[in-house]
Amino acid sequence: MTEQTPSRTGRHEAGAPERDTTRPDGSDAGGTRTAWQRLARAGRPRPTKANVLATVLALGLGFAIAAQVRQTSIEGLEDLREDELIRILDSVDQDGNRLAQEIQELQQSRDRLQNDSTSLSEARGAAQQRLDSLGILAGTVPAKGPGIVITINDPKNAVTAPLLLDTLQELRDAGAEAIEINGIRVVVNTYFTDGEGGIAVSGKDVSAPYVITAIGDAQTLASAMQIPGGVTNSVRSLGGEAVIDTQESVTVSALQTVSEPQYARPVPSPSSS
């Protein structure tokens, strides 16, 4: 009879000698290996679509991380050569110089604007001061300052328009800057006339007592009124009285309405060549 060989299934044909798989402790070695193999097969995931997709995503993520790390490593200064570092340093210096120049230009622009604003403010202040001065001279604005108040009493109605005009001229010669008579502002075109009803100042009738308020150096103005042969002596000679009151602050509040000149026109200033 021929000897039979074992089949590929691990089983033995009849008449073939059997291998002894019994361990010294009595356990079966073949059974143990089979159990481990079954356990390994049970823990191995089945190749489903979800598992395949997760694997692909994991591989893609790993590749992206590796590429990013490599790029970061390339961009890091620690991996650059000396000439590359020098080139980067030169670029940084150029950027710093450019920014410093821009800062300087901005500061110069700021200074120019501040100077222009200061000049403009000073010009406006000077213009306003000039306007105020012209307003005082023209009688269009009130004025306040040291001065005198002259009260001329005329019980005999002997005071004439020429005497009041002389009083005005004496005050101007003494430096009076603003004057009013009985509530009428005295300006460059103010005139005095005698009429049947008394004295008229620029066409407005006034009567005694004549109260004249003048702004200027008070002592100088008072002295001008009291000189020999001056206003005080002239009023006294007519039977009247001129009382002079020196004050630290007087107010000329009467205003003059400025009319448009009918004939006079300003002469243009010659342009500089």
Rank of each mutant, 00 (worst) to 15 (best):
G240I: 02
P155D: 10
S202V: 09
P6Q: 13
G198N: 06
N182I: 00
E180K: 02
P17H: 09
Q247S: 08
V141A: 10
I148L: 12
S109G: 04
E13Q: 11
G26V: 02
H12W: 14
L165Y: 13
A224G: 01
L57W: 04
V211L: 13
A67V: 10
T246W: 00
P266I: 06
G60S: 12
D79A: 04
E122T: 14
T190C: 09
E260I: 11
A143H: 03
N51F: 07
G15P: 05
A178L: 06
S273T: 08
S91G: 14
L238A: 07
A126K: 15
G216L: 00
V231L: 15
T55G: 15
L89T: 07
A40T: 08
R33H: 07
G139C: 11
A54W: 04
P155S: 11
D194R: 04
E75S: 02
Q256G: 01
Q68A: 15
T2L: 13
V149N: 03
R19P: 15
S7K: 10
D83Q: 13
G60R: 07
S259Q: 12
D205M: 09
L80K: 04
R33M: 06
T48N: 07
L99I: 10
G230P: 14
R33V: 10
N51Q: 12
S269D: 09
V211F: 08
T118L: 13
A40M: 08
G240P: 05
I86N: 09
S223V: 01
P6A: 13
L165D: 15
L106W: 08
S273H: 06
L57P: 01
I212M: 11
T55Q: 13
D79L: 01
A50D: 12
A176G: 15
V235K: 04
G195V: 06
A161P: 03
L53M: 11
L77V: 00
A14E: 10
G76E: 00
S117V: 04
A222M: 03
K49Y: 02
I148H: 02
Q219E: 11
K144H: 03
D20N: 14
Q219I: 01
S202R: 09
